[in-house]
Design a protein around this nucleic acid. Structure first.
Lengths: 230, 230
DNA sequence: TCGTGTTATCTTGTATGCTTGATGCGGTGA
DNA sequence: TCACCGCATCAAGCATACAAGATAACACGA
């Protein structure tokens, strides 16, 4: 257990370092869903006291990566199929909104930046799935930012990364990852206004590449029953 | 300074009590926007150690009620006009979605509950503005819950209460508060499907009662310029 | 008089030790 | 044999103590 102590790069605060470290362990799969995280044990492991660890755990809890069983401890959150669908259902609404706003506020510079990100993804070859997830997230975060509404951005940032933390993209296979990465070109076309799809359609198609029924807990799943009012 | 110690009602954890207490002080306006909150001072005031206070502050920070200037302390967040508009712009999208879902998942029992809440608001007479805000929030939280998507509910819960924490309803006058409370009947009719308004229209009208241009940073503000695609 | 460097002091960040509540095991009785 | 009660054990919650960064005031020099 010669786990590198956390003090290496002297950064702002130990808490932040521990947060990054633990998140990394979860995302990379070393801490598995359902596993219990012991404060003292982590403190010994990271060579810090329990306080920064404790605060890091509560932060990750707020972000939804951990479950808290009071006076019992923190557990790595296990995301059920329904949870994933519910998150994606909210995501559809918010990302569609972000696409519209990004389209309305687009500048040449922003367009170039988004294009660079898309090209980067199209050039992805046989890299690791983790890299793919990172590239994916980079693009999404970029157009969230370009919505010019930082609350929209913040909301999406607190919602979406959890999905990627559970290896959602691992199991869908290499060619699907490839397809998904390429599909960001379609999103960019929506932003540029050169697409025939509505933002809702585009983001729905985009999510369907990696998930089953991502719209299941959204109003899109109800409109056929209820009528076209919504 | 005879501030009641916090140990009165023996609840789950001191941290939770301190969170509620501080949030109350902010909402009630005793801690003013921009004011600095001193850990030690609060600890003495509440007769607890700094740890629960510290953790409470970080929690309120995550919720957006406080700003954190690292190694400097926590400050009561000051919400600009733009911030309010940005939050409301996200809120429109999410609450419209919640209305649609609630409509699709409506049961007799839920309908009765929502109706009771509306009646309660219609009977509000010359109570304090704080009570009005509480009633308001109760109704909204109810139909968030009835969307049957707890992630949608959580997202709204992390976004909306901040608005009410800054006396947004104080300055709009008694008759406007009355009007706003009564307008929840319109939202209920949307949920019941007996309204001629779309959910988006209804929630937009609803927010316009208390706020200026709540849609300013949403796609609704862009459609007239960009076209009817969105 | 103004600007800069130094220091005093305050406050957050971190460490360690104690308390309390929860869990699980073993013993006892039916 | 099974159910229930008590006790040992352990980890989270909390308190106290220490360290380090930041601010602001003051003094000194230009």
């Amino acid at each position: 257990m010669e786990s590198t102590a956390v003090r290496e790069l002297p950064s702002a605060t130990l808490k932040a370092l521990v947060v990054d470290r633990i998140r990394g362990e979860i995302v990379s799969g070393r801490y598995k869903p359902g596993e219990r995280l012991n404060e003292s044990k982590l403190a010994r492991e990271f060579k810090v006291s329990r306080i920064p660890v404790r605060e890091a755990l509560t932060k990750l809890h707020e972000q939804g990566l951990l479950m808290n069983h009071p006076r019992r401890g923190m557990f790595v959150n296990t995301l059920s199929e329904e949870d994933t669908q519910k998150i994606n259902s909210v995501r559809i609404v918010l990302e569609a909104e972000a696409l519209k706003l990004c389209r309305a506020k687009l500048t040449k510079e922003r367009e170039r930046h988004l294009d660079r990100l898309v090209v980067g993804m199209e050039q992805w070859e046989r890299g690791s799935e983790l890299d793919a997830a990172a590239l994916d997230l980079d693009f999404h975060k970029a157009f969230w930012t370009y919505s010019d509404n930082n609350y929209l951005e913040r909301t999406l940032s607190s919602l979406v990364p959890v999905l990627l933390a559970h290896h959602a993209l691992d199991s869908i296979g290499h060619e699907l990852v490839r397809w998904r990465l390429n599909h960001h070109r379609a999103l960019l076309e929506v932003i540029q206004g050169t697409s025939k799809q509505t933002p809702e359609e585009a983001i729905l198609v985009h999510l369907r590449i990696a998930y089953n029924s991502p719209e299941r807990f959204s109003s899109l799943a109800c409109t056929t029953i209820i009528g076209q009012r919504g």
